[in-house]
């Protein structure tokens, strides 16, 4: 079997394994979704009822909720992986270890997509904002942005598996490095909500795209150093 074919098969196998576990327990998605909703509700109280003010901050609120949900989801995923040394077993079976990174990243991405699909309508109803007008363009921004979050988050979540204060270290590493992505994603979303089109936000999209490409390349390059003994 050729190398790339084997790689794809192993990625798929790992992904199916993760999704199957998740389907049976629903632990990661539930905690991420409930937490994202909580963040949105708490912000709602903090901001007050002024519709104009809400419109100005809503994109920030959504992305903050996603950032925190990412941290939470990765922590749950890491915890499950480190129980009973299951990570070691998986690594032994792999031909190319970056398959593990790619699978974990795609799984995290899928959870995030689900969280957004479920929480964005709630956000629209609570904040009285019509997301449907720009749903296609929003989809592009969210997919690119969440891809970046998954890449950086997964990379750091594998690192913090070997630290003592995991819960503290993951956000400490993840949040500052994701600053460029956060800024670009928040303002791109904001522009779309006020009625701009994708063409008006190419700057932000380029930034997010470059962030994704740079960190994906970097992550694949250094991942072997993380898992190798």
């Amino acid at each position: 079997m050729s190398g790339s074919k084997l790689f794809i098969r192993q990625v798929l196998a790992l992904l199916v394994k993760d999704l199957k576990t998740e389907w049976r327990t629903r632990e990661i998605f539930t905690s991420m979704f409930v937490f994202a909703v909580l963040v949105i509700v708490v912000f709602n109280f903090a901001i007050g009822a002024d519709p104009e003010l809400i419109r100005q901050v809503v994109s920030g609120v959504v992305w903050v909720a996603l950032l925190f949900a990412t941290v939470l989801g990765l922590q749950r995923a890491g915890q499950m992986e480190s129980e009973e040394d299951s990570l070691e077993g998986v690594l032994l079976a792999l031909h190319d270890r970056s398959a593990l990174f790619v699978a974990k990243m795609i799984a995290q991405m899928l959870y995030l997509v689900l969280v957004v699909v479920c929480s964005l309508p709630l956000c629209g109803i609570w904040f009285r904002i019509d997301f449907t007008a720009c749903i296609g363009a929003l989809g592009v921004v969210f997919v690119l942005g969440m891809l970046g979050l998954s890449i950086v988050g997964t990379l750091f979540s594998m690192i913090v598996l070997h630290t003592r204060a995991r819960e503290v270290m993951l956000p400490m590493l993840f949040l500052p490095v994701s600053v460029p992505l956060t800024i670009a994603a928040v303002y791109a979303t904001d522009q779309l909500i006020v009625g701009k089109s994708l063409r008006d936000i190419t700057d932000y999209l380029t930034l997010i795209g470059i962030f994704d490409i740079v960190f994906l390349t970097l992550a694949l390059m250094v991942f072997d150093y993380i898992v190798e003994d």
Binding site: T163, P180, V214, F215, L218, V222, Y225, D229
Partner: peptide
């Protein structure tokens, strides 16, 4: 971090952090 891998993790963050500099600069300027 636990001892044997500490230096390697730090090195990875050392690379990731510096690569992030131009991106941060670009984003904060925008």
């Amino acid at each position: 971090a636990h001892d044997p891998k500490r230096a390697r993790f730090a090195a990875i963050l050392g690379v990731v952090g510096f690569v992030d500099v131009p991106l941060i600069r670009w984003s904060v300027e925008k």
